[in-house]
Nucleic acid binder design. Structure first.
Lengths: 330, 330
DNA sequence: TTGTAGGCGTTATCAC
DNA sequence: GTGATAACGCCTACAA
């Protein structure tokens, strides 16, 4: 039989409501009694019954994360970080890898206090469910229907291009996926174009569509990228950049001596690549932190207008970037 | 306010205990009343309160899956399949990506009925927790401490080698990770060695340590693999084999004309590789099914002796295997 | 500062 | 067939 607060009460010689108070750190209980009760509870191996608690509190302190596409390593890292971030809060997190509809049903059953949604929230009726949620990784500049949290892609690319510019680079090529259906990728490309223009490098704009986001997509995009004889490249994602490095090395380019490289995505793994990679993006632990804060805020304060929160990216300089091999021309 | 069975009772003009019965398909309620109650319930958007139910039933119908390393794509596929397999059962599944200790705590909080553990169950005190669990992907030939479910690696390799042997291959190289800490990988290698010996191919044994399980590990292992001039190769995992194909193609080998390839892991994605891949392993949907059955069995029938269940692998023949280019010598 | 009692939404056991 | 009613384990006024 599992031990309940009544058992503790009996053994501690108090009423069970006192036990309840003590266990919840209520200030209305004498320090001495509290200690004793805590001791007894611990000794008996007491474990509060979530179901009972939930029944009366109408709150689970659990947040559900919907994660339908579990293949991308950057997302996996983000999930891990979010999970870690929750450890510092009173909330726990559970995951669903099901399709959005199924996931929502599960989460409703569990009566999670809130949800985190990755990517496009196609089924707008999420919103009908009255359960608070935030969306990550969707680009929406107009007044959104729900709270969105995302990286500032324009700022990302501006910082990346600016860094290369300062190192004397002009011919900067972008390699990434240009898939109409993926708003996030489009935003990156757009950010690059805007940044190049703003820094008066419009003539050097060169975009290579990698037709995918995997290692090999980056690897095989290099030939096309080299056509414009760039002194620097920006890779649209972690995996992509990994393939790019490899292809460049195989072709005899030395990084950063011959070509500088910056990758999008700011995750610790960037430091362990063939060449430790200079990267741009919101550091994943910060991103996680922000997402966690956002959903908690959403839960705890009555809904204001949904807003888009654009996170400021950080440039993390490592060994893949260096001065341009070509003399600065202008 | 959420709608409860009392609300339904009022609107349907019956007592709420009748509603409860109707909702649980009790035979003790007239068909007519049942229909009416169900209608009302549906109309009001009734959603049963899991917490309340659990409080009295002492059962959650929920199973927790511990998944600490979320990076490997094959595991991701397995998780998805397990999730799908649960849909056919009365159970639901929740996921935790936390470290084992944290995950167990979460699951205890939820009072899950059972747990699925991936890989080494380091913290043996799982067993203390009285909550049933099964472990997948751990090799233990002696009497185990807990129920284990795993693929039969010896049989896998035997079938793979046998298939190649029948096609006339002799020089069959294995590429995989040979990391002492990963019992699963070791088993594969051992399986290969045993199979080669059993088929009198001991002289042709050639094992290449890929030093990892990623795409690029396979890609870069090819040079070493070619040293023994094999006519066939076996890749230790999906990602590995992907890299192997690429490297071979780049070197001008035609698959399967010059070299045959079999990959470990039997997932549908094998069909979509550069060359549709012949593969060996327990088909992932079957594996999922078995794991689900195992944990449910573990929950519903009082613990017998824990056993190891070795699943029979299937050889799925696609285009990456063909007859040996060399004349059969013996 | 501590104890009493009512209720959270269900299920299950009895009477009717 | 159907309807009271007592649990389930906990929280929270309110009373002592």
């Amino acid at each position: 039989m599992t031990v309940t607060i009544k058992d503790i009460a009996k053994l501690a010689g108090v009423s069970y409501s006192t036990v309840s108070k003590a266990l919840n750190n209520s200030p209305l209980v004498k320090e001495e009694t509290r200690r004793k009760i805590l001791d007894v509870a611990c000794e008996m191996g007491y474990e509060p019954n979530l179901a009972a608690k939930q029944l009366v509190r109408k709150k689970t302190d659990v947040i559900g994360l919907m994660w339908p596409t579990i293949e991308r390593i950057v997302l996996a890292t983000l999930v891990t970080n979010i999970s870690k971030a929750f450890e510092k809060t009173p909330y726990s997190m559970i995951l669903s890898v099901d399709a959005q509809e199924t996931a929502v049903d599960t989460f409703r059953k569990f009566q999670v206090d809130g949800m985190i949604v990755f990517g496009e929230s196609k089924h707008m009726h999420l919103y009908d469910y009255t359960i608070p949620f935030v969306v990550y990784g969707v680009s929406e500049s107009t007044q959104p229907l729900y709270p969105i949290i995302d990286a500032n892609h324009e700022a990302s690319m501006y910082k990346a291009v600016e860094h290369l510019h300062q190192l004397g680079h002009r011919q900067i090529t972008y390699i990434g996926q240009y898939d109409k259906s993926d708003a996030l990728q489009i935003e990156k490309v757009d950010g690059y174009v805007k940044a190049m223009k703003k820094l008066h490098l419009a003539d050097y704009i060169h975009i290579v569509d990698s037709n995918g986001l995997n290692w090999f997509d980056g690897y095989s995009a290099i030939d096309r990228a080299l056509e414009s004889k760039p002194t620097a490249m920006i890779g649209g994602s972690y995996d992509l950049s990994g393939g790019m490095i490899r292809a460049l090395q195989e072709k005899g380019f030395s990084i950063p001596h011959d070509i500088s490289l910056i990758s999008y995505d700011n995750i610790p793994q960037m430091a362990n690549m063939e060449v430790p990679m200079t990267c741009i993006g919101v550091p994943v632990h910060l991103l996680a932190e922000e997402i966690v804060q956002a959903i908690i805020h959403q839960i705890e304060s009555p809904t204001e207008e949904p807003t888009v929160k654009k996170l400021t990216p950080t440039l993390t300089i490592r060994e893949s970037t260096g001065p341009s091999p070509e003399p600065s021309d202008s």
